[in-house]
Design a protein around this nucleic acid. Structure first.
Lengths: 244, 244
DNA sequence: CGACTGGTTGAGTATGGTCAACTTCGGTGG
DNA sequence: CCACCGAAGTTGACCATACTCAACCAGTCG
């Protein structure tokens, strides 16, 4: 048993899922953590790599420890779409009603995920109210976020979508701290596939935001927000000034 | 107590949520149903009507009994978007993390909903595993469906989106039965706002599907599927034949 | 019958897609 | 340390899909 405890320690000692109070593993008793740990597989996934399918077959519950994972669909003629993004703490339940397709998980940044054993996960959500609360809250957030994202894709212009994307990135950085610098996290083609655009349009869109003095690009992956209020307005779909 | 039981009987006797085995109230014991019933408000909502906001403030859990409810967002300049559709059996949990916006619920067909008391709902999902299973399954479905919908909005052409919409309607009609006739359920402008199009484009899109002999329009709200396989292909984003 | 709502059709336009060339960046190896 | 390579990103010219706006048509209701 000490041996088992040691094994957990190695796997989970520094894991964000356990250390961050708001995340799933932080809700568990030592005993529960030991049990889950023994059936879980933390894995690093390189950017552009698919999350190991064999792992998922037996353990279709994935928790994101670090990085960004995308749910990728590829249409028959090659069009690629990132249906949703998952960030630290998100839990992905890949079980689907029946023969439904469902897309594949791809790391869009270097990422670390932990694949959880279904039985143990189900048992924990059944028996531990705190775990359950975290899981259900996370699902609710995913549903709400998906709604917001549908509005972006359905009715917003390219600059508006990018403004919304900037805030999405911002929200997942700096635990609530104010900061004008935002890391774009994904590369252009992934942003494009996520926001329903082409890479070229993403490029032009950021340029346009810069021209309007809302942001300033800092290298390929960072930018500074210059006018947060106006950027927010734009992200929310307000009539945009075509300032001189 | 007999009195109370009688009250339930009136409210819930013929309610789909109780009669259909797969839905939430069918999972409850008589006692639980009585308790929930006494804090619940079944309401009819006319097409185009918003679900009563005062009701939702105190009871932000809505279960759809009949009809189609849309989650509607209106941008400042009037653009309207239907972020998601809810059909019989769907459960909407409107609780949002903090000051988030969230959209409003609008009936897109004549509908019947039941607003559930939060405390009772939370208690039931805590204590009754069958209720919990239904609730969690429904959330999972909503998440998966939202992903599919994002793919539609992000990367598909107008005819492809409409094909996908036809199958979405089909899925919610006739409990699994094969049938070539599909009810479009919503009017053109609502389909447009849901699929990220304009009403004119919806009209032209259906015409195009008809021209390709995939469907046949029967009045404003019904159509017959003539080539299900091809329509499915198209909905899934396969390269479409521009048949002569 | 006329007014109204919802739907369709047509003409012109604009936003974003496509394709190709070019630039920048980051890493690797001489 | 620099030269080189390949991947990612940007720019430009052109084009297509879907949007806009307006007129028109088809039911429905008073």
């Amino acid at each position: 048993m000490d041996k088992a405890a040691l094994v957990i320690a190695e796997k989970c000692r520094n894991c964000a899922l356990r250390i961050d109070d708001a995340l799933i593993c932080a809700q568990m008793s030592p005993g529960e953590l030991i049990e889950l740990s023994s059936h879980s597989f933390p894995t690093n996934v390189d950017r552009k790599q698919q999350v190991n399918a064999r792992l998922l077959d037996r353990n279709p519950i994935i928790a994101i420890v670090e990085g960004v994972i995308g749910l990728q669909y590829v249409l028959k003629d090659g069009r690629r779409s990132i249906a949703s993004l998952f960030w630290r703490g998100d839990i992905i339940d890949l079980r689907r009603p029946d023969g439904h397709d469902g897309g594949v998980l791809v790391a869009l940044t270097p990422a670390r995920v932990c694949s959880l054993n279904v039985e143990t996960y189900d048992k924990l959500t059944r028996e531990n109210p705190d775990v359950r609360a975290v899981v259900i809250d996370n699902m609710r957030e995913q549903i709400h976020h998906a709604s917001d994202h549908s509005v972006d894709l359905g009715k917003k212009s390219a600059p508006e979508r990018l403004a919304a994307y900037i805030f999405e990135c911002r929200r997942h950085q700096l635990g609530g701290k104010e900061c004008r610098t935002v890391d774009l996290a994904l590369q252009r083609s992934d942003i494009a596939d996520y926001m329903g655009l082409q890479p070229e349009t993403v490029s032009r869109g950021f340029k346009e935001l810069e021209r309007r003095k809302l942001i300033e690009l800092k290298g390929r992956s960072k930018l500074i927000i210059h006018d947060k209020a106006a950027l927010r307005q734009l992200a929310n779909g307000s009539p945009q000034e075509t300032s001189a």
